[in-house]
């Protein structure tokens, strides 16, 4: 009985906050104190608006670029951390951990002026660069765990059998750490996808991603638009995480990413 009450409360606590969001997304007239809105297709139509489509493409492009660059730049450090012990390893771990868990507004205020100076402000390139600050270290940490489980003997076996560096990388190393790579890329994508303040700070409002549109809609008190937009923003993370949930056990450092989405 107590268990039933507890699980009921848990389900309500987890799901109830989503109900108003769903209602507002399909709402036309929804005045206080109505419990249910008059239905309207305005939210859906708004999502199909060219401005939203452009923002969707901008968001997708930036998040994909950030994920790809973060994996390329971050994965090798994961190998060093996962396979070797060396002097200063704790320091390296700290240096990589701090940007991965700290929302980066505090450090970005200081370098914004350099982005302006070097022509990176108000550009997609600048936004991609600034979003590497949290994502590259994050990839390194996830890959450190993946490489810690790598059997180096397999690489040596391939070498003995005559495989060159590229074939060893593609046929032995990458398949062995593939789950880690997938999760690292996924979270780098999601961190970029849900980022607002860094995009605003460096993109200056000219790089319009979906979160910027959402904030604009909230700012103008257009709640049906905001709710519809927020569903568009929420859907890809929900789908991607559901598809990869097999790889996401609570014990991998990857879940750190959930703490800061």
């Amino acid at each position: 009985m107590r268990r039933a009450v507890g699980s009921g409360l848990l389900a309500v606590g987890l799901l109830a906050p989503l109900v108003p969001l769903l209602l507002w997304a399909v709402a036309g007239e929804f005045r206080y104190p109505a419990l249910l809105p008059e239905l309207s297709g305005r939210g859906v139509r708004l999502v199909l608006d060219p401005a939203v489509r452009d923002a969707l493409l901008t968001s997708l492009g930036i998040a994909s670029a950030v994920a790809a660059l973060a994996v390329v730049l971050g994965a090798t450090a994961g190998r060093a951390l996962g396979l070797y012990t060396f002097r200063g390893k704790r320091l390296v771990q700290f240096l990589l951990l701090a940007p991965a868990i700290v929302p980066t507004l505090a450090v970005t205020l200081g370098i914004q002026i350099f982005f302006i100076r070097y022509g990176l402000a108000d550009s997609v390139t600048g936004v991609v660069v600034v979003q590497l600050i949290p994502t590259v270290p994050y990839v390194s940490l996830v890959m450190a765990a993946a490489f810690a489980g790598l059997d180096v003997d397999a690489e040596d076996a391939a070498r003995v059998l005559g495989a060159g560096p590229v074939r060893r990388l593609l046929l032995v190393t990458v398949p062995a750490v593939r789950p880690g790579l997938v999760v690292a890329a996924l979270f780098a994508f999601l961190i970029s996808w849900s980022e607002y303040i860094l995009t605003l700070l460096i993109g200056g409002g000219t790089v319009r991603t979906l979160p910027l549109l959402l904030f604009a809609a909230i700012g103008s008190a257009d709640l049906p638009a905001a709710a519809a937009l927020s569903l568009v923003i929420a859907l890809p993370p929900l789908v991607l995480v559901a598809l990869t949930s097999r790889l996401l056990t609570g014990r991998t450092p990857a879940v750190v990413g959930f703490g800061r989405l």
């Binding site: 730049l73 450090a77 060093a80 205020l109």
Partner: peptide, 21 residues
């Protein structure tokens, strides 16, 4: 060499940002 790419990003952008702040 393995650490270089990630540490460059962290030191230049994160460390630089902190130092500038």
């Amino acid at each position: 060499l393995l650490l270089a790419p990630a540490l460059t990003v962290v030191v230049v952008l994160f460390g630089g940002g902190l130092a500038q702040a």
